[in-house]
Computed example of a mutant assay.
Amino acid sequence: MRLKPVSVVSFLVLLLFHFFAGGDGHFIYNGFAGARLDLDGMTVVEPDGKLALTNITSQLKGSAFHPTPLRFHETNGTVARSFSTTFVFAIVTDLVTVGGNGLAFFVAPTKNLSMASPSQFLGLFNPQNNGNASNHVFAVELDTILNPEFRDISSNHVGVDVNGLASVVAEPAGYYDDDTGDFKNLTLIAGDAMQVWVDYDGRSTVLNVTLAPVEAPRPIKPLISVTVDLSPVLNGTAYVGLSSSTGPFRTRHYVLGWSFALDGAAPPLGYSNLPKPPRIGDSKRRFKARDVILPVATPILALAVVAGVSLVVWRQLRYAELREEWEVEFGPHRLAYKDLYRATGGFDGKHLLGVGGFGRVYKGVLPASKKEVAVKVVVSHDDAKLG
């Protein structure tokens, strides 16, 4: 079927709006199917348009760059330009309470992050260069693992990073309700789509970071508002990107839409056009939790069984009756106390035959052999004196 001219124009306008990436520093991606991004590491664009920064593979990293370098300094070269970005993300983990390691929006002078480490370094830094001023990297992290070496405040926070992962400022993930002003917590690894806004004013050097559930109105009060001069950090031309990494836990980090602008507000995303994040059912999440718990609990249970058996054997050896040499030579003559107790009716006075200097003698009948015996109960000298 042939399209009408108006339909062709509308399609071209929509296509340009979907993937616009001009040299003036504005772009928008409502989904990433066919997007011309530079991908690195494990990052792929899935058929439905989701940008999957990571998959469930452990200890790997992934990143996506807008391919065109942007000039972040004004003409005089001393003041960083204002910029704004927004993106929708979802972090999906197979477990209920733990995931790793988070994702970040960043600005860097190069697209070569081959020396960066995965896990807690988010594919941006490594143990040697983390914190070095020569990095010239600015980032906003959505961190889902508490790393004491970076002085993290929790395993569910948003942080502003300059040249390293010890955040300049960090806050628990959430947003402020416009009506009540109350803080509403958001769990980053819940698998829900959420939106982040990052706005930097080059003149006032104020950086605002805002977080909210997807399609919710942008909160008036930002989650983070901090004064930070990015002029010495964003040194001339730089690239903007998104990065993530995995640790030991099975986690997927998705970006569903992304826009950016220099010297203005980032274009709003079209929520209805964004791909949907995958969801993992509660039963499957609980099953995965058992997969983690059982390998840990099994050796502990085995150690407990070994300890219990050892205790029983030790008690038996400790309280076992000792046979003297003459008993071994002439055969077993010792009877269990309980058998003697039963034979004498519990040393009942009715069975008493007589009393000597060292105790009493009772008549009894052994329960097994039915033989009559005389049983002498010996007392110590001290007991005899007390008696």
Rank of each mutant, 00 (worst) to 15 (best):
N208M: 05
N208E: 10
V209G: 01
A212R: 14
P213W: 04
V214L: 13
V214Y: 10
E215W: 05
A216Y: 04
I220C: 02
I220E: 11
K221R: 06
S225Q: 10
V226R: 10
T227L: 11
V228A: 14
D229G: 01
P232L: 07
V233Y: 10
N235R: 15
N235G: 01
N235P: 05
Y239L: 07
V240K: 00
V240E: 02
V240N: 04
L242D: 06
S244C: 11
T246P: 00
G247N: 11
T251N: 08
R252I: 01
H253Q: 13
Y254P: 00
L256E: 02
L256C: 06
S259D: 02
S259N: 02
F260T: 00
D263P: 10
D263M: 01
A266C: 02
P267M: 08
P267F: 05
P268V: 14
G270P: 12
Y271R: 12
S272Q: 15
N273H: 07
L274E: 06
P275C: 10
K276F: 08
P277H: 04
P278H: 03
G281C: 15
D282C: 11
S283F: 03
K284W: 15
R285H: 13
R285T: 13
F287W: 14
K288G: 05
K288H: 12
K288N: 14
A289C: 14
R290Q: 14
R290G: 15
V292H: 06
L294S: 04
L294R: 12
P295G: 06
A297H: 05
T298H: 04
T298M: 12
I300Q: 08
A302P: 09
V305R: 07
